[in-house]
Computed example of a mutant assay.
Amino acid sequence: MNNAASILILAFLALTFLQSGYEKIFYWQDNVTWLKEHFAKTKLKNQVPLALFHLLVLELISGIFCVVGIIQLVTKSGREFGFYGAIFSCICLLMMLFGQRLAKDYDGARTIVIYFIPAVIAVYWLN
């Protein structure tokens, strides 16, 4: 299998973002409450539900594109959806990194970088 590493990274990203999207959908109020507290001292304090909704949409797009990208790689019918899934994953992670830095949660920001590295590798391999 020529694309094993790309498939594994896309699976990692798909699981990450589809699970995160699931949690946002089914535990919406818990997330909003926690994030309002997290961003209480920032300019985002009044924008939490809207920002969370935007992130949710992008996470679902990322996860779905990654799944379709895996199917494309397995069936050797292209790489476009995997590439777009990786790009949208990077955008989601950059949005989260921005939020963590804005909230001065540097440990949280550091954790996001761990996810960002394989996402950028996927962009590079699938380009």
Rank of each mutant, 00 (worst) to 15 (best):
Gly78Asp: 11
Val32Lys: 04
Asn127Phe: 07
Glu80Leu: 15
Ile112Leu: 15
Glu59Lys: 12
Ser77Gln: 11
Tyr106Leu: 13
Lys36Phe: 01
Thr33Gly: 00
Ile91Leu: 13
Ala103Asn: 04
Phe88Glu: 01
Arg79Ile: 06
Leu93Gln: 04
Tyr115Leu: 13
Phe83Pro: 01
Tyr27Pro: 00
Ala109Ser: 13
Leu8His: 09
Val123Lys: 05
Cys90Thr: 15
Ala109Asp: 05
Cys66Thr: 03
Tyr115Asp: 03
Lys41Pro: 00
Glu59Gly: 04
Glu59Asn: 12
Thr42Trp: 12
Cys92Ile: 05
Leu56Lys: 06
Leu15Gln: 09
Ala4Phe: 12
Phe98Cys: 02
Cys90Arg: 00
Ala11Glu: 07
Phe12Asp: 00
Ser62His: 06
Cys92Lys: 01
Ile7Pro: 09
Val68Ala: 12
Asn127Asp: 01
Val67Asp: 05
Leu94Cys: 13
Val48Arg: 04
Asn127Gly: 10
Val67Lys: 09
Ile87Ser: 01
Tyr84Arg: 06
Arg79Tyr: 10
Tyr124His: 01
Leu58Thr: 13
Lys104Val: 11
Asp107Lys: 12
Asn31Ile: 06
Leu50Phe: 10
Asn127Glu: 02
Ala40Tyr: 09
Lys104Gly: 00
Val68Ser: 06
Ile25Arg: 07
Pro118Thr: 03
Gly85Pro: 02
Leu13Gln: 10
Gly21Thr: 06
Asp107Glu: 14
Phe53Arg: 09
Lys45Ile: 10
Leu102Thr: 15
Gln100Ala: 14
Leu58Cys: 12
Lys36Pro: 01
Asn31Gln: 13
Cys90His: 01
Cys90Pro: 02
Leu97Ala: 13
Ile117Gly: 01
Phe116Pro: 00
Met95Tyr: 08
Glu23Cys: 05
Ile121Gly: 03
Cys66Ser: 14
Leu50Gln: 11
Asn2Lys: 14
Tyr115Phe: 15
Leu50Asn: 12
Val113Gln: 06
Gly108Met: 03
Gly85Lys: 03
Gly85Thr: 02
Phe39Asp: 07
Leu13Phe: 07
Phe12Gln: 02
Trp34Leu: 10
Leu58Gly: 08
Thr33Phe: 08
Ile7Gln: 14
Asn46Gly: 09
Ile121Asp: 01
Phe53Asp: 04
Leu55Val: 11
Leu56His: 02
Gln100Lys: 13
Ile61Phe: 14
His54Ala: 15
Glu59Ile: 05
Lys41Cys: 00
Cys92Met: 00
Gln72Ile: 09
Val123Asp: 04
Leu55Tyr: 09
Thr16Leu: 15
Lys43Asp: 11
Leu10Asp: 09
Val57Gly: 08
Gln29Thr: 14
Gly82Trp: 02
Gly63Arg: 08
Ala86Asp: 04
Lys43Leu: 12
Gly99Trp: 01
Leu18Arg: 06
Trp28Gln: 06
Cys92Phe: 04
Thr75His: 08
Arg101Gln: 10
Ile121Ser: 02
Cys66Val: 05
Gln72Phe: 09
Arg101Cys: 07
Glu37Pro: 00
Gln72Val: 05
Ala109His: 02
Leu55Gln: 10
Leu44His: 07
Leu97His: 08
Ile71Gly: 03
Gly63Glu: 05
Glu23Tyr: 15
Glu59His: 13
Ile64Cys: 05
Ala40Met: 09
